[in-house]
Design a protein around this nucleic acid. Sequence first.
RNA 1: GCCGACGUGGCGGAAUUGGCAGACGCGCUUGGUUUAGGCCCAAGUGGGGUAACCCGUGGGGGUUCGACUCCCUCCGUCGGCACCA
Length: 951
Amino acid sequence: MDNVAFLSYKPDPMHTYGFEKIEKKWRDKWEAEQTFAVPSTSATNFDRNKPKYYILDMFPYPSGKGLHVGHPLGYIATDIVARFKRMKGFNVLHPMGFDAFGLPAEQYAIETGTHPEVTTLKNIENMQKQLRQCGLSYDWSREIQTIDPKYYQWTQWIFLQIYNAWFDEEQNKARHIDTLIQAYENDVYRVSAEKQRVAKQNKDYVNATKFADLSKAEQQDVLGKDRLAFLDDVTVNWCPGLGTVLANEEVTVDGRSERGNFPVFKRPLKQWMLRITKYADRLEDDLRLVDWPAAVKHMQRNWIGKSQGATIEFALERNANEKIPVFTTRPDTLFGCTFMVLAPEHPFVEHLVTDDQRRAVQRFQEKMAAKSDVERQSDTKSKEGVFTGSYAVNPANGRKMPIWIADYVLMGYGSGAIMAVPAHDQRDFEFAKKHLIKIRAVVQPDDKFLKEHQLSLMEYLEDPGSLDVAFEEKGVGAQSDSKDIDLNGITTDRAKEKMIQFLETKGLGSRRVQYKLRDWLFSRQRYWGEPFPILHGPDGEIRAVDEKDLPVVLPEMKDFKPFASDDVHALPTPSLGRAPKTWQEVEIDGVKYTRELNTMPQWAGSCWYYLRFIDPGNDQRFAGEAEEQYWMGENGVDLYVGGVEHAVLHLLYARFWHKVLFDLGHVSTCEPFGKLFNQGYIQAYSYQDERGMYVSALDVQEEKDGTYTYNGAKVTRQLGKMGKSLKNSISPDEVIESFGCDTFRLYEMYLGPIEQSKTWDTEAIVGVHRFLQRVWRNFISEEDGQLQVVDQPMDDTLKLIVHKTIDLVSKDMNEMKFNTAIAHLIQLNNLFVSMDQIPLAAAQSFVLMLSPLAPHLCEELWQRMGHQESLSYHPWPQADRSVLAEDKVEIVVQINGKRRANIEVAPDISKEEAEALSMQQDNVRKHLEGMEIVKFVYVPKRLINFVVKPK
RNA sequence: GCCGACGUGGCGGAAUUGGCAGACGCGCUUGGUUUAGGCCCAAGUGGGGUAACCCGUGGGGGUUCGACUCCCUCCGUCGGCACCA
């Protein structure tokens, strides 16, 4: 069947069951009876003693484009698990909602010229309609929308928790800001490390002896140095095309916005930041605790970028008191350091440069400043740099080293300066070769390396000719040339350790853990987001909105467009600047405050929505304590399913918020998502004509020679995403209309493992449809529509097969291997086809097992079997172990690994009995003739193997 | 460049975790039903051979009575990170 035929294909009514009627009947019934609604944990009809299972989908953005068949893949999978767990006796929480704030919704609203709320609500309604026909067992009574003021009231509340918290390094957790104020007021401010650090940063306040003596604005300024949410002058990613700044995570590698693909520029700006870096260590460490795909953990670790090493102070040659700190992960190679490199923007450069080098350095700095980030990052080969004229002293051996600046050292990481060890670092090596700087090998390579390059150890370490390959060392020992420390002949790991200890005792440096993770830029200049619950006073005081005054409702505005611009130099201006003055200005006790005009980023609402589902109607707290403890207990969300695209952004931010809430005592687990599962994508072929235009995939014909044509013209084929613009999108609606929702669900699951990407193949769908038709025909007579099931016991063979299937399908369900579960059910059903009459017990087990996958059909059959209650909460069938414990098993007899016979034996016979029995087989005897048995292997229940050789 | 995952018929994919490779479905072949096509039903379908049997899980090597599965190595595909010191 080609694609054209698929469109017009309708199963023959003569040979299909009336899925349209059946599916509508049961969907309506579930909805009318609220079958899947979960009562409050304190309700009388709620059994708190039953185990809980919280299963969650990543909630969607209500985009205007509607769903294609790829979207429901994860929802169908979670629905099957939810239905399975209910039958297994769990209280199942399975909610759905919409993440409706943010750029995509606003961009769509701008494109269509209507208010984002109107378009968003319309899109939500449309998506709900599409989701409903997939037969998903959500508790819709718990639906949430992030744009609802009753929801974002708590988003704002959580922001205030973060704002009113500081990170106590000693306890390695967040605490309420009052504890810090108290410490300051108890005069600790004057003497504590905090005070000194703050004093250093705020030279103006050094003279104040008491915290209380500072002005309100000054106090807030001091506290801002420690609050987990704070205003700061930072270099931000400014995107004029979108009229907003973006988080690092929202900028692509080639320096464009992830949404809209507009160019992004660096520029300094005062912005709200969240101090996620304080949690870098715990975010990294606690990945141990969660059951997540290795790839996602890997990506998060990569993003956090923890590396262990040391900070080493390098003194200037001309003045030993002036020091430049560097960070290194290879302190053991300190003796091999032959020069230093600073980032071109490093503030110390000005101080270092000598008169004769000044012009060259300035020219280089200007050149680097002119380069965009994009250019600088893509250009990893050139290794440009210039000598500053100054020298530093290697603290370990007193050698004099030139100080350079170069493009390959970044200001944003470590201290913006490095010790260069050209012999043992690829980049330093390339730089040293280009600029003819001395190379010194100090780590001894392994024997294999020396052999390959035909070098002796001495040659390697001394001969300049060997240094072309020096940086390739594999590291088995280290050399040193100081009397104070001996690293010779020990492993790299031990040498690192020894060097750090040496540096610390000598006061030359210290152990240091460095992270790539930066603080989270939390403000946006767009309209369609949560307003900050923050007020600005006339004297620069920052003041949190009182909790009782939440929510700060987003003002009604006709013109909500961002101040976007083609002008690179245009300044970021918040859209809320267009809001009425009555909204912008607030008077408290005679003081006029203005509202914060930035809004929160798209991620804010999704950082905690899983907590709201627990108790969505609560207007006293984000969720009731007892409810939170029950549903989040132990593992948090028990199963969280969504795409890998959220591996770093959403999942890192949500973990961070959750940890703050945990530290402040608002939630009971330190991790929100115990188990995470990434569903794959559904891919589809798209077709382009000669001009590169996409043509409708449904109208493409495959020719006999394997090429593809559209209206007779040749087109090229490519496998990729499904989408309206690619003209290869298939909506669930059309599939459900032709084949029914049960077939659609079954088919999506049958394509392959959920975690894998797979190709949508319109042809194969008839396979599972045929299966469901056969199921129907097996149970319901075509002539009279009567149930064809007899209340008779199963014979032994059928019993064994049914119980084996129960065993296998149960296992598959637990492991979410729905494709193999379906295969086993098809197999059992094929057995039913060959039977005249199906025993009731077998039919019931079969229908129960199929029901999570094809719920409508199974409910109908279940009812026709005489049951009043929905099977949704009926216990899952149990495999009878005594049936499965066979009294005879067939095992293979092999000779030298070759199968020679099959014999039936009792499963628990002895090795000797097995040997004797197998010897009685003619074929075995024949092959043993003239042979000597060297060894006899017996694997109980599996096989027998004779190892023989000619006599 | 670094890190990670994977490689099984014409296709999507199974394999009780080291035990009869290819379950199940698509496609294909033949037959039935049908005015015809579609739908539906039945049988067959890794390769070679009349057959007994032989060969087969990217290539090569190893461990084992026995390897898709474990180890080494090479090749290929996909994904992540990318001047992070």
